[in-house]
Amino acid sequence: MNMEEIINGIKQRFECEVQVKEIPCGVKKIKRTSIFVDLKREDFRRFMDYLFEIQEYPHFAIISATDLGENMELLYHFTIDYGKQNEEKTISLRIKLPKSDLRIETITDLIPGAMISEREIHEMVGIEFIGLKDTRHFFLPENWPEGKYPWRRDETFPEDMLNKLYETWKEDDNHE
């Protein structure tokens, strides 16, 4: 499936903004393609179905999260058309969630390989994945305090847990 077909397909089915980046590299200046799609939360599962239509097993890379103050932004990075010379494209789905309602459906039923990433985002920024069966900590220790999220830029950031080495040194410390 070529680029125009994919972009037209997305625009026909969803009310969203699509941004395409093409970056040349090397001497022959062959381009690599990244597609960013701004999506509403309601359309998310429908978009996943569309993704499975254009690629039998879309490759899931990672979810990245950004704290934008009022909202949390999730970017689901997928790739399609892998296994073909210079044809692979990344599709990044951007979904904004208001901090008052940080919930989104899981995709682990479609892509089991997304489990670690969903657990990571769950513990690092506090997004609730509806339908995610395993919500134990993966990267943070088991006794991590509840309601503290290290990748947030607001009051839920565990400020008191920061290790500030420069504060441990005092004028009258004896270094002999």
Binding site: G26, G83, N86
Partner: peptide, 14 residues
């Protein structure tokens, strides 16, 4: 699946 084959970067696409 190999990023060097699928996704042009560096000199791999050449």
């Amino acid at each position: 699946k190999d990023v060097r084959q699928d996704f042009p970067y560096g000199a791999y696409a050449d």
